[in-house]
Design a protein around this nucleic acid. Sequence first.
DNA 1: CCGTTACGTTTACAGTTGTAAACTAAATGC
DNA 2: GCATTTAGTTTACAACTGTAAACGTAACGG
Lengths: 160, 160
Amino acid sequence: MSENLNISDAEWEVMRVVWASGESTSQDITQVLSGKRGWTQSTVKTLIGRLTSKGYLQAREDGRRFVYTTHLEEPESLKLEIEGLLGRICSRKKPNLLAYLIEKTPMIDQDRAMLIKVLQNKQVVAEVPCDCFPGQCTCHLHASGTILSSLSLEEKKHEN
Amino acid sequence: MSENLNISDAEWEVMRVVWASGESTSQDITQVLSGKRGWTQSTVKTLIGRLTSKGYLQAREDGRRFVYTTHLEEPESLKLEIEGLLGRICSRKKPNLLAYLIEKTPMIDQDRAMLIKVLQNKQVVAEVPCDCFPGQCTCHLHASGTILSSLSLEEKKHEN
DNA sequence: CCGTTACGTTTACAGTTGTAAACTAAATGC
DNA sequence: GCATTTAGTTTACAACTGTAAACGTAACGG
């Protein structure tokens, strides 16, 4: 679906309110965020406006006010944002990062069992290919000579 | 250590080069990033300048040029960025997010075994507390009445 | 010595983000 | 009916980002 949504931190606060309640008026949102962040209605309205023009919120008229809803889903949205960050490192380093995240995420026994099951069912590959552009990852060092020479010798990938 | 580093996408490209080679001149970096992103030296220099003034890169003079190094570590930096994003959802939803990440991360059998071991050794808790501000998570709904009434009744956490 | 290179620094400029005041228009209280 | 409240819309403005040209200056080639 939507490839690359871009929801800023402040905008996300607004989305969370809508996600939590299904539909919210600007007043509802202001209520929550003036408590949590000390924002004024003005600030909240600006954020709602931006989210609406980006198409992330829909406004349905209800009397003289609008009720805002969203077609985005919270988990999907966060996945997209996180995948964006994951693109910053070599695929080969991702399992270690996962280990770190697992360690630092509090969970109950059921969660742990679920994750173990996910891992047990997971299809593994023989080798995880390095997907980095040469010169941005040490995986490429073993290729030939210096980074720079390898740069000129190898095909240059233009996307990453 | 550093609480909240803030490295933009473009800056991260520069950091990756330095991380990969340990130390780089502006020319090295330009070489890589003109290939990968089509950036001019100007662009790269601006980014180097910004990273240097933020303290993320150090410049050591070497003849008439500078050699740039960093005290940051790539995995640590990414962890910080990701933790920032993870703060956007309820702690209770994090295990499911982990499941998703595990599913979509390619890995070899050894990685999988390692992650299973991490999980097996992981200390679990009896219950993961919802750490959301009321009105931003459905966990709070069961409290009392509507979101808004619960907002005025409950203590308002001011940080999240 | 002097033009050309190669670097780093300054300036540029539009877009996004955080935070909000000001403005406009409709509704509501009396 | 008119002041006040309540919405939404417009404007503001500084910081940060993406992308780069222009500028100053030291070194190098001849």
